[in-house]
Nucleic acid binder design. Structure first.
Lengths: 212, 212
DNA sequence: GACTTTGTTTGACACTTGTCAAGAAATCTC
DNA sequence: GAGATTTCTTGACAAGTGTCAAACAAAGTC
C-alpha cells in the first residue's frame, strides 16, 4: 500500500524524478509534522506551528497538502508503515516461548521509552477519530495492523510453548493494548518505574491467554 | 468529596442559599457543557458552543468559571461522581459468581449504549491529559476510581467463586478498560454487534483472572 | 424606596486558525 | 540564455477563539 495522499496535484508533467521529489517533500513535511503533533497533540497543533518547527513556511504545507485533514491523514498513514514490523524480528528469531516473551517485552518497553511522543499521538488520534469521521478509516487500518501484530506474537508464543491461544485476535489486542495505553498515560505523568511495571504485567497476562 | 471548583469567586456575603444557587448554576452549566463536549470532543468544543447549546450566554460561563480549563476540570470532577457507583448495586446484590458476571456485563453494555458520548469524552480527555498537565490530576483521580470499581467487582467475583484474583488491581483495570475502550471506539464507527462482542470478550477473560 | 450586592447581557479586544492568491524565485527544457 | 514550469514566500482574508469590561437587570438589605 502506498502512502501517497490524494493531495492537491498541481498540473505536473510526466517527470518521474519530479514525482519522487514531491513525495520526498511530503515525507519530510510529514515527519516534521509528526514531531510537532507528538509533542503538542492533535488539538493544539496548527499548520503554522508545524511549519514553524520545520524548515518550510506555512505556504509550502498548503502547497503539498490540500488541507489540514489531508496532512494529518497522510501522517497517520506514514506512521503506520513504521510501527508495523516493530516486533517481527523478535517473532522470527525466538526459539522458545520465554525467549519470545523476553524479546517482546524488551522491544515493548523500549518503544514506550524511545517513542513516547508517537504513542501519545496515536492514542490521541484514535480518540479524535471517534469525533471526526475523516480520520476513522486510517485509524481502524492501523488498529487492524496492530491487532495482527499482537496476534502473530501470541500464536507464535503459543506454538513455542506447545499450546494455543484461548482468546481470539481482537480480544488479545484489546488486552495488551489496554496495558500499553495505561503505561503510555502513566509515563506521561511520571516515567519512573512505568516500563518495568508494564513488562511485569504483560508477562503475568501472556500465559493466561494460552492453554496446552 | 465536593465537586466545588476553585473558580473566580466574586466577593460574596455569607448567604448560604446564594452559595447553593451558585453551585446549582455551575452544575447546570457543567451538565450542558458535558453534553456538548460528549458530542464534539474536547478539541472542537468552544465556550461559545457550550453557551449556545445551553440556556445561558457565553458571558455567564465566564462569570461562573475562571477560564476554559476551569470549566472542563469542573465537568470532569462532576462526571466522576456519576460513574463511581455504577456497578455497586450489582456487586452487593449478586449471590453467585455467574449472577455477578451477568449483572456486570449487563450494566456494562447498557452504559456503553446509553452513555456513549460520555465514554467517548472520557477517552478523549484522558488522551488530552497527556498533553495538558492541568487535566492530569483530575484524570488520574478518575482512573483510580474506576480501577477501584473494577477491583471491587473482581474480588467479589473471586469470592463468590471461591477463588482469588491472579492479577493485581492496576492490571485488572487495564485489561477490562482495554476491552471497553475497544468497544467504545468500535461503537462510534459502527454500533452493530459491538455490545454483544464486548460482553462475550469480558465473559471470556474474567475467569482467567482468578484461580481457586 | 434608595442602595448595595449579585447576576446577566452585550459587544468588544487581541489573537489564532485554515485557507488562499499573487507574485518572486528556482528549476527545468529546448 | 529565453521561456515555460514548478516551487516557494509573503501577505492577506474571513471566521472563530478565549477573555474581559462596561452597561443593564434582578434581588436582597437597610
Amino acid at each position: 500500500m502506498s502512502v501517497t495522499a490524494d493531495a492537491a496535484e498541481p498540473a505536473r508533467p510526466a517527470r518521474v524524478s519530479g514525482i519522487d521529489k514531491v513525495e520526498r517533500r511530503r515525507i519530510a513535511l510529514a515527519e516534521s509534522a509528526l514531531k510537532t503533533l507528538g509533542e503538542l497533540g492533535y488539538a493544539r497543533t496548527s499548520l503554522r506551528e508545524i511549519a514553524n518547527n520545520s524548515e518550510f513556511t506555512h505556504g509550502v504545507v498548503h502547497y503539498y497538502f490540500r488541507d489540514k485533514i489531508d496532512l494529518i491523514s497522510y501522517c497517520v498513514r506514514y506512521y503506520k508503515t513504521k510501527c508495523a514490523q516493530r516486533y517481527d524480528e523478535v517473532v522470527e528469531t525466538a526459539e522458545s516461548a520465554d525467549e519470545l516473551a523476553v524479546g517482546f517485552l524488551g522491544k515493548m518497553t523500549q518503544t514506550l521509552v524511545e517513542e513516547t511522543a508517537m504513542h501519545r499521538l496515536w492514542y490521541d488520534l484514535r480518540a479524535q477519530s471517534m469525533f471526526e469521521e475523516q480520520l476513522r478509516a486510517d485509524v481502524t487500518a492501523i488498529d487492524e495492523l496492530l491487532e495482527q501484530m499482537i496476534w502473530r506474537i501470541l500464536t507464535r508464543y503459543a506454538d513455542l510453548g506447545g499450546g494455543s491461544p484461548t482468546v481470539d485476535s481482537p480480544t488479545a489486542y484489546a488486552l495488551v493494548d489496554g496495558l500499553f495505553e495505561q503505561a503510555v498515560v502513566g509515563y506521561a505523568a511520571d516515567p519512573d518505574k512505568v516500563p518495568e511495571l508494564l513488562a511485569d504485567r504483560v508477562r503475568q497476562v501472556l500465559p493466561k491467554l494460552i492453554a496446552a
